[in-house]
Computed example of a mutant assay.
Amino acid sequence: MFRVQLVLLLGLCVGVLIRRGLLKALHAAGCILLGFLLAGTSLAPGLTSLVRSLIAVVASVRF
């Protein structure tokens, strides 16, 4: 469930940045391609663990 929400949130952020001109579409496409390539490497489990840890930290913050 967190994965879908994280993908939607990051997609929204990328869309806003592209729309405001702060991120070029080519750069965003390059980042997406890098993400797909990293997902197929031995780094993927470590990156998944890092993202889960960051989500836990953000979820524990009280606003």
Rank of each mutant, 00 (worst) to 15 (best):
V14W: 00
A28T: 03
T41E: 08
L34V: 15
R19W: 08
V58M: 00
F63G: 11
A59V: 05
L37D: 09
I18Y: 00
L26C: 05
S60W: 10
S60H: 06
G40N: 12
A59Y: 05
R19F: 09
L47V: 08
A44I: 05
G35L: 06
G35K: 00
L22F: 07
R20Y: 12
F36C: 12
I55R: 05
L43M: 14
A44Q: 13
L38V: 14
L33H: 10
L17N: 07
R19S: 07
A39N: 14
L33D: 08
F63P: 13
A25M: 05
I55Y: 05
R52L: 08
A28N: 08
A56S: 08
L23W: 02
R52D: 13
T48N: 12
R20A: 09
R19N: 13
V51W: 01
A44R: 11
V61Y: 02
H27G: 00
A29W: 12
L17M: 11
A28C: 02
L50T: 03
A29S: 06
L37R: 11
L54M: 01
R52K: 03
L54Q: 04
L33V: 13
L50N: 02
V61T: 10
I32S: 04
A44C: 11
G30L: 08
S42D: 15
V16A: 04
S60F: 07
L34I: 15
I32E: 08
L37G: 12
A28W: 08
V14Y: 00
L47K: 01
L50E: 04
R62T: 15
L34P: 11
L37P: 10
A25W: 04
G35T: 10
A28F: 03
R62G: 13
P45I: 01
C31P: 14
G21H: 06
V14A: 03
L17W: 06
C13P: 04
G21C: 06
R20W: 09
V57H: 02
C13K: 03
A28S: 01
L47W: 01
S49H: 11
L23C: 02
L34K: 15
I32K: 00
L43S: 14
L23T: 06
V16N: 05
L34Q: 11
C31S: 15
G40Q: 09
V16P: 00
L22D: 05
V57Y: 12
H27I: 06
A39D: 14
L47I: 07
L37M: 15
K24Q: 06
L37N: 10
L54W: 05
L38W: 15
C31Y: 15
S49W: 05
L43T: 10
G15H: 00
L26R: 00
F36W: 15
V61F: 07
G35H: 06
I55Q: 05
R19T: 03
I32H: 08
T48K: 03
S49N: 09
V51P: 01
L22P: 10
R19H: 04
G46S: 08
L26Q: 07
H27V: 03
R19M: 03
R52G: 02
S42I: 14
